[in-house]
């Protein structure tokens, strides 16, 4: 028997779209429209663990008609970390400032300073070698956790985090080492590159700009 094709449609006729008010576009996480003054939009940390940015709900829709306040519906604070107050409707954003970054650096190098003193005053070559290797291992490990977790010892103590500007994630160990190499650019102009966070909009050093990294409060 030859194929006769599909049977004709037997269901109800088409009634058009369902009635009801327009529900607006679906809004999931990170649907917030970018700030119109910035072509790339502000830095927005992607969700990490318990932190979930709340979707942008749009402007004020009218007088309050809902239920009485029940407290935060989703437990502890789930938005972005502190971004500063709103001034005149313009969003403000916060990066770790220069003095805190200097403090984190000093904490990071403090063990190396002790190692240097010990190596300098030790009369035994073996003791000097042990401390020198310990200092080297500490430096590598500290860089390892900086790339993997976004926090070196100093940054962890002072509550900061090194993240990728594009992904909002730690940059990885290899990129952390590359960033250290890029610090040569900061040094080669009489170390002025390290002062760039004093005036830069994102408080980046030149190495941060090359590697597209930012330091933000953890």
């Amino acid at each position: 028997m030859a194929y006769q094709g599909p049977p004709p449609y037997q269901g109800p006729p088409y009634q058009g779209p369902p009635d009801g008010p327009y529900q607006g576009p679906p809004q999931g996480p990170h649907q917030r429209p970018p700030y119109p003054g910035t072509p790339q939009g502000p830095y927005q940390r992607p969700p990490q663990g318990p932190y979930q940015d709340q979707p942008y709900q749009g402007p004020y829709q009218g007088p309050y008609q809902g239920q009485p306040y029940q407290g935060p519906p989703q437990g502890p604070y789930q938005g972005q970390p502190y971004q500063g107050p709103q001034y005149g409707g313009v969003p403000t954003y916060q990066y770790s400032d220069w003095i805190h970054r200097v403090g984190a650096y000093l904490i990071d190098v403090a063990p190396l300073f002790v190692v240097g003193i010990v190596v300098g005053i030790a009369h035994s070559f073996f003791v000097s070698l042990i401390f020198w290797l310990a200092g080297l291992a500490y430096s590598i490990w500290n860089r390892w956790i900086l790339g993997g977790q976004g926090q070196s010892i100093g940054k962890r103590v002072l509550g900061m985090q090194l993240l990728s500007e594009e992904t909002g994630q730690p940059i990885g160990t290899l990129n952390a080492f590359l960033r250290d190499i890029c610090h040569f650019v900061d040094s080669v102009i009489c170390y002025v590159g390290y002062l760039f966070p004093l005036w830069d909009a994102k408080r980046q050093t030149l190495a941060d700009k090359i590697m597209r990294t930012v330091v933000v409060p953890a």
Partner: peptide, 16 residues
Amino acid sequence: MIVRRMYSVPEHISML
């Protein structure tokens, strides 16, 4: 990008 600072850039440079 608007960055809010407690002190202006010239003030930061002055402190430095």
